[in-house]
């Protein structure tokens, strides 16, 4: 085989592989957000703190979509602590929007199961005890949590809810809560 032909073939094969890889990459990319890492000093020449900018989505009376709001979280050393701070922001809510969480609900614990790419969120028993009921409200709570978490942290593919440390059949008698939830980004509205 001539040298020129070999070069052509090699280039063609390489290009094929590249094209296939690119295609695969494009097909796998879903909606998501890469939190921005920010550094800030204390203005007195002291320690530099690192923050990440996250994008939270809240419910609103005027739209059927969850609405985006940016927040900053001081970057902790442990990844799970970052998730915990993020979920705390979701529980705390935002004055201008609705956080579909009953008042007084707390996050008891949180675990990330890396092998299953699943975040376990264990809420206080008041979640079920004071849940207002209704299918719409259950779905609002579930996808508020799942979409926000999975949108901001792409390593998390699914979320499983525990209440008081235990699996619960449902929040208020509708949606099956014993299984993990995958995000449904049709709930959120990109600006």
């Amino acid at each position: 085989m001539k040298k020129g032909t070999r070069a052509w073939l090699a280039a063609g094969a390489a290009a094929l592989v590249l094209a296939a890889a690119l295609l695969l990459l494009l097909r796998r990319r879903g909606p998501g957000f890469v939190p921005e890492l920010l550094s800030r000093d204390d203005g007195r020449g002291g320690a530099v703190a690192e923050f990440i900018k996250v994008k939270l989505f809240f419910l609103s009376e005027t739209s059927r979509y969850l609405q985006p709001v940016y927040r900053e979280i001081e970057m902790p050393e442990a990844r799970e602590e970052l998730y915990r701070r993020f979920v705390s922001l979701l529980l705390a809510g935002d004055g201008a929007h609705i956080a579909p969480v009953p008042a007084g609900v707390q996050l008891r614990s949180l675990h990330y199961l890396a092998g299953r790419q699943m975040l376990l969120l264990d809420f206080s028993e008041s979640l079920a005890g004071s849940f207002p009921g209704g299918t719409a409200a259950e779905l609002e709570f579930i996808y508020y949590m799942v979409d926000n978490v999975c949108y901001n942290f792409r390593e998390i593919k699914k979320v499983k809810f525990l209440i008081g440390g235990n699996e619960s059949k449902s929040l208020a008698g509708h949606i099956d809560l014993e299984r993990p939830f995958f995000p449904d980004f049709t709930w959120i509205q990109e600006p």
Partner: peptide
């Protein structure tokens, strides 16, 4: 059922069938 939402303005009727999508 009768529905309920965190959005006080939510209204209307809807009918569900099961989803295994999740």
């Amino acid at each position: 059922h009768a529905n309920s939402s965190f959005r006080k303005s939510a209204f209307g009727s809807e009918t569900y069938f099961v989803s295994l999508q999740a």
